[in-house]
Structure formats: C-alpha cells, structure tokens
Design a protein around this nucleic acid. Structure first.
Length: 284
DNA sequence: AGACATGTTGCTCA
DNA sequence: ATGAGCAACATGTC
C-alpha cells in the first residue's frame, strides 16, 4: 500500500532494526531482472556485503538507505515499493521466501524487501554525491517550494486532464497515490473528473492546502510521530477520513452520510462523494 | 471464473 | 514538441 506515508513507515521499520546492529553480513537477492533493472544485483550484493548502515530518508514514494563500505566508499540503496512492496524485519535465521527479493542480514535481524507483483524498483549508486534518481524527486508537498502558484501553473499546463489524473503526477505531486488523491479531492470538495484547467483560483488554493494537510495527517497517523511506530498499517485511520469508507460496499461519505460513488477516472478507480463533490463548479 | 488491486512506463495519437 | 489516454508489466485476493 505504499504512498508517501507508507514509504516513511517502512523506512522507519528497517531503520530502527538496522541501527543497533548496522553491519551487513550477507545479502540475498531473488528476482534479478525486473526489480533490479537499473541496478545489477550481483554488484549490489558485492558492494553491500560487509558494509555498514548509516542513515535513511524517504521522499515521495521512494526510500533511501545509506551505507558505508569497508573502504569508506558511500553506498546509496534506493527502494521504490511499487504497488505491493513491503519492508519487514525477521530474525537473522530467516529463510527468504518466494517474494523476498532483497534481504540484508545483520547479526540481529533480516531486513526483508518483499514484493509479489514486482512493480517496485531497486536502485543503487556508489559515490560521495547523491545520485540523480534521488535528487531529481520533485519538491515535497510539505516544503516551501511546493507553493500554490507552482500548483496553479502545473494545472494550467495539464488543463484538459481530469484533476484526479493530475494529482497522480509525481513530477509535481510527489508521493500522492490513488487513496491520497481521492482523500484530497474529497476534502477540497472537488469532483475528480473536473478538468484541471477549470478550477478557479480559490479552488486551486484549497486543493493546494488539502494536499499539504493530507500529507501531514497521513505522515503523523500512519508513520507515527518521532520514532514511535504503530504496529501495523491501517489501524489508526480515523473514520472521519474517506479512507475507511472508499472500498466498502454501500460506503457512505463521513461528512454528508450520503452514498459514495465509484468510477474509473484518469485510468484509476476513483471514489468520491457526489453530494459534496459536484462536476460543475458552484455558480457564484 | 472473473474482476480488481494504494504504481510506473512506454507507446500512440492528436 | 507537448499532452492525453491506454496497454503492459506479474501475481495475489475476493
């Protein structure tokens, strides 16, 4: 389920387990074609073995783990979880399963990247400077650079596409995925099929604000505050969000209590509240 | 059995 | 050249 906040959740999970015992003793890889399409698995195994975990970050849907090799070379491991990727922690005796495509063994743990559908991606870089695949990620939703005017300009450029499709474009809305996009549009009271260019300046500003609010709420709710992690995903989402109702049969809008609608918009299944999100902008 | 899945990419057409 | 739409990727679940 990896969008922005889930990526951060999984990053913390690996980070907390790796930190006390940071030496990588052994590296296991499984699929070496699809997931490692930009990073040869053999080179990655050779470089990471006997390296030391140092730090980690997440940005958008991507997770970065930094290591230092024995000769003090810096190593950058990038993981994109795709649709079904997960980072878990197992005992050091863990026997990798069918979908465990990358496993890092320390003295205390096995750090497991599992991805049944293999839509994820593993990237790897050696060198003192951060790689382009990390630095090229668009400015975060919660950064200053993600401004209302930047959003407005982007919506103009994508004027004829449905706003739902535009919110999924990582080049401007890094980390937003299907559920976040629906949550944002629902809070902003904007119909997902509205053409991006049809939004009034006030609507654009509301959309911008709700992008930031949902990003902030998702991060604190799902990835937890500080270093305290919720035990599982999905447990702490309040019923006041659209999230808990969007896939339910006969689901109702938590604000209007009216039935939710579902249709394919922008190539993805979309859920919205017709009583709240109108196709035509309200006439003034 | 068949529909569907919280993502990206590469192709076609306008 | 740029943007919009869609099939493809690979596998599991309801």
């Amino acid at each position: 389920m990896p969008e922005l906040a889930e990526a951060e959740f999984y990053r913390k999970r690996w980070h907390q387990s790796a930190l006390p015992s940071p030496k990588i003793l052994r590296v296991h890889t499984h699929d070496t074609k699809r997931l490692f399409r930009t990073a040869p698995a053999s080179a990655l195994r050779a470089a990471l073995t006997d390296s030391t975990f140092t730090s980690s970050s997440s940005a958008a849907k991507q997770i970065l783990f930094r290591f230092t090799a024995r000769d003090s070379t810096k190593l950058w491991l990038g993981i994109h979880l795709g649709m079904t990727g997960e980072l878990t922690v197992a005992p050091p005796t863990h026997t990798p399963g069918k979908h465990d495509h990358l496993v890092l063994f320390t003295a205390a743990h096995a750090l497991v990247f599992a991805d049944p559908r293999m839509f994820g991606r593993i990237q790897f870089h050696v060198g003192s400077e951060p790689p382009a695949w990390w630095t090229n990620i668009a400015p975060a939703l919660l950064s200053r650079e993600f401004s209302a005017s930047t959003v407005a300009a982007f919506l103009q450029r994508r004027a004829r596409a449905p706003i739902k499709a535009v919110l999924l474009m990582q080049e401007r809305f890094p980390g937003i995925g299907n559920w976040m996009a629906d949550e944002i549009l629902w809070r902003a009271a904007l119909h997902p099929a509205r053409a991006a260019g049809s939004l009034t300046p006030a609507e654009v500003r509301t959309l911008w604000r709700e992008c930031r609010t949902v990003a902030r709420l998702a991060l604190t709710t799902i990835a937890g505050c500080g270093e305290k992690l919720p035990p599982d995903l999905n447990v702490h989402i309040p019923d006041t969000w659209l999230f808990n109702h969007r896939w339910q049969k006969g689901g109702r809008c938590p604000k209007t209590k009216k039935p939710l609608a579902r249709a394919e918009i922008g190539g993805r299944t979309t859920c919205w509240s017709p009583a709240r999100q109108k196709l035509r902008p309200k006439s003034a």
